[in-house]
Amino acid sequence: MTKPLVATGHFTGCFGCHMSLLDIDERILDLVQLVEFDKSPINDIKTFNRPVDIGIIEGGVSNSENVEFLREFRKYCKILVAIGSCALTGGVPAMRNTVPLKECLQEAYLDGPTIVNGVIPNDPELPILLDRVYPCHEVVKIDYFLPGCPPSGDTLFNAIVALLKGDALALPYELVKYD
């Protein structure tokens, strides 16, 4: 029997959730026994070319590229798990949500106290910013949520193993945190 395929992805956030995934320490050896990693920043596979069993995504959705990749994750992953505050709520990047985008750009690139001859970046290569930062579930359907900033290594390991075994996910109280 072939091993289940796992993909991981990162949108608008700090990569802390992926760091936390590495924080499962030597259990990562158990994990690679259980699964095969497909598209992921961990192995630098950049594109999907086959269906994947479990997709794990961190980060909120703040620009056109995030939307495109998130939709791709939904298309290729049978189960999509959102992890961490940014994916679940928009997180710290969503602090811009109460300020109009134009004002954010103006302050960051034109009016800030350290800016000389500022210009708002407009290279066509750059993804277009959205009006605000969206949690992943407001863009595609998400099957499971794991809160935390980041979720601890224990939280991620327990959840992934439960998902692979088809067990009910029963995380102890101290592993479910919003921060």
Binding site: T89, G90, A94, N97, F145, L146, Y173, V176
Partner: peptide
Amino acid sequence: AYRLELLTPQMPYAWP
């Protein structure tokens, strides 16, 4: 939220 086992809010955010 922890006690009542709310993993994450899923209603639309208002961003007031």
